[in-house]
Computed example of a mutant assay.
Amino acid sequence: MQNVKTTEEVALGIRRRVFEHSMRNNGGYLSQACSAAEQLAFLYNEALTLGQPTLPMIPRPFGGVPSADNPDYVTGAGYNGPFEPHFDRLFIAPAHYALVAYAALIEVGRMAPEGLEMFNQDGSSVEMIGAEHSPGMEVHNGTLGIGFSTGAGLAWGRKRKGESGKVCVFMSDGEVQEGQTWEAVQAAAHHGIDNLWAIMDVNRQQCDGAMDSVMEVGDISTKLRDFGAVVVEIDAHDIDAMRQARAEPHEGRPLIILAHSSPTKGMDFLMKRFPRLHYVRFKSAEERDEMNTAIAAELGIAPVDLGGH
C-alpha cells in the first residue's frame, strides 16, 4: 500500500486515537501507545512489505471458533494482506497491545475508524486482548512468550520453501521472563533462520508494575547475543535509528531490535501514576477531566467531548 502519511504522523495519530478512545471508555492501554507508537508505525508504514487487506474495512462480528461447522472461519491476518510468498508476515506477540495495533491499522488505512467503536463489545472480533480472529492478528498470543517461537517456526518453513517474504515479531520485554522465548532464539540461531526479525518494546513495565519489581531480567542484549541473535539497541522513539537498525546485516541469525521506550512518551501526565501504568482506569470523573485536559494539550488536540459519558 502507498504511504499517505509520514511514519511520524502515523505514530502521533496512534497516540491521539488511543487517548481519545480511552477517555470515552473510562480507561485504556495508554502507556502501550506511549511506548510503542513509533514501533508499530514504522512496521506498518515502511518496514514491512504487505499487500492490500483482504478483509472488510469494518470488521465482521466474531463468527465462532474454527470447526467443521464453521468452514468460513478466517484469522485477522487479512488486515495485513494476503499470504503470498513475497509478502512479509507480522506476529503481534503481546496481545494486550491490541488497542494500539488497531489504531495503527486505522492510521495506515487498513481498517475503518468505525472498527474501534466495536472494541471490547459483546460479539465483536475487535477484542480487548487480541485473539487470532482480531484485526491484524494471525495467532492467539494472549499467553506472553509464545510469539517469537511461533514466528521462528513460520520463518523456518518459509525459508525451506524458498519464499522471499520475511517474518517479523513485535514483542514486549516482559516476554524475556518466559523460557520459551530463549529456546526460540537459540533454535533460530542454530537453524540459521535469518528471514526472521523482531522489534522488542523495552519499556520495563508489566501488569504488576515495574519489571524489576516482578522479576529482574538483567542485561537482555548480552543474553540475546549469547543465545545467537544479532542485537541492535535503539531509542524506541527515534525512527531514523529504527531504520538503521533494520538494515543491520544478520546472515545466518535472527535480528532482534531492542527499542528502549518511555511508557509516558507524549503523555507525561501519566507519570502521576508511575509505575502502575499497565491499564489506566479512572477513579473519578474529576480525575478523568484532569487527565483529558492535560494530555490533550500534550498531544496538540482539543480535550475529548465527554458529554453523556
Rank of each mutant, 00 (worst) to 15 (best):
V185P: 00
G142S: 00
E233D: 05
M215P: 02
E138I: 05
A188R: 07
Q180K: 07
S164R: 13
V176A: 02
A210K: 13
G209S: 10
G218E: 02
G165W: 05
D226N: 14
R246D: 00
D238F: 01
G228K: 08
P135K: 00
F227L: 13
S221A: 15
R225A: 04
S134M: 09
M211A: 09
V167F: 00
T150I: 09
G252L: 06
G165D: 04
G145V: 08
S164C: 08
I234P: 01
T222H: 14
G153N: 11
Q206C: 15
G165I: 02
I193T: 11
G145F: 02
G151L: 12
S164E: 12
A152N: 13
G179D: 03
E183Y: 07
L144P: 02
S134H: 07
T150F: 10
A152E: 14
G252S: 07
A131S: 15
I234N: 02
K159E: 04
S213L: 13
V217K: 05
K223Q: 15
H190L: 13
S172H: 09
A210E: 14
V169P: 03
Q244P: 00
G209P: 11
E251L: 10
T150M: 15
M215C: 09
R246W: 00
E251I: 09
A229T: 11
F227W: 14
H237K: 10
H133I: 08
F170L: 15
A152I: 09
A198L: 10
V167W: 00
A245L: 04
H140W: 05
E251M: 02
D240V: 11
H190Q: 11
Q180C: 07
G162E: 10
W182C: 07
K166V: 06
C168P: 03
H190D: 11
I220K: 03
R160G: 09
D201P: 09
D219K: 09
E175S: 06
W156A: 12
G151N: 12
G147W: 07
R160S: 08
V176K: 02
Q186D: 09
V176C: 05
T181K: 02
K166R: 15
V231Q: 09
G145C: 06
T222G: 05
G174S: 00
M215I: 13
R158K: 14
G151D: 08
H133Q: 13
I193P: 06
A131I: 04
I234M: 02
G162S: 12
M171Q: 14
Q180D: 14
D235L: 06
K161L: 13
G174R: 00
S134K: 03
G228A: 11
Q186W: 05
A152F: 08
R225M: 06
V214P: 00
M171W: 01
A198R: 11
G162N: 12
